[in-house]
Lab assay of single mutants.
Amino acid sequence: TTVKLGDIKVTFDNPEKAKKYAQKLAKIYQLTVHVHGDTIHVK
């Protein structure tokens, strides 16, 4: 599962960890989390 934020891409083996990371980023940057299959976009 890949978390994308602009040019930053972080890949996790564990989808749950990816989701938590995405939510953490979203909170920090006051953005929202969008899940598209294996990719989680923070924008």
Rank of each mutant, 00 (worst) to 15 (best):
T1H: 07
T2H: 09
V3N: 02
V3I: 06
K4L: 14
K4Q: 13
K4V: 15
L5Q: 02
L5A: 04
L5S: 03
L5R: 04
L5T: 03
L5I: 15
G6I: 07
I8M: 11
I8R: 10
I8A: 05
I8F: 15
I8S: 06
K9C: 15
K9R: 13
K9E: 13
K9Q: 11
V10A: 04
V10K: 08
V10H: 04
T11H: 13
T11R: 13
T11W: 15
T11E: 07
F12H: 01
D13C: 14
D13W: 11
N14I: 05
N14W: 06
N14K: 05
N14A: 05
N14E: 06
P15V: 10
P15T: 06
E16D: 10
E16T: 09
E16H: 09
E16L: 10
E16Q: 09
E16M: 10
K17D: 14
K17T: 12
K17L: 12
K17V: 10
K17R: 11
A18W: 06
A18G: 03
A18E: 00
A18Q: 01
K19T: 07
K19Y: 15
K19G: 04
K19E: 07
K19P: 00
K20P: 00
K20Y: 10
Y21F: 13
A22S: 02
A22G: 01
A22E: 00
Q23I: 11
Q23L: 12
Q23V: 08
Q23C: 15
K24D: 06
K24Q: 09
K24V: 10
L25M: 07
L25R: 01
A26F: 05
A26V: 03
A26C: 15
K27N: 08
K27E: 11
K27H: 08
I28F: 11
I28L: 13
I28R: 13
Y29K: 03
Q30V: 05
Q30W: 08
Q30D: 11
T32E: 09
V33E: 01
V33C: 11
H34F: 13
H34T: 12
H34L: 11
H34Q: 12
H34W: 12
V35R: 06
V35W: 10
V35A: 06
H36F: 12
H36R: 10
H36W: 10
H36I: 15
H36Y: 12
D38I: 08
D38H: 10
T39S: 05
T39L: 09
T39W: 07
I40G: 02
I40E: 01
H41F: 13
V42C: 09
V42G: 01
K43P: 03
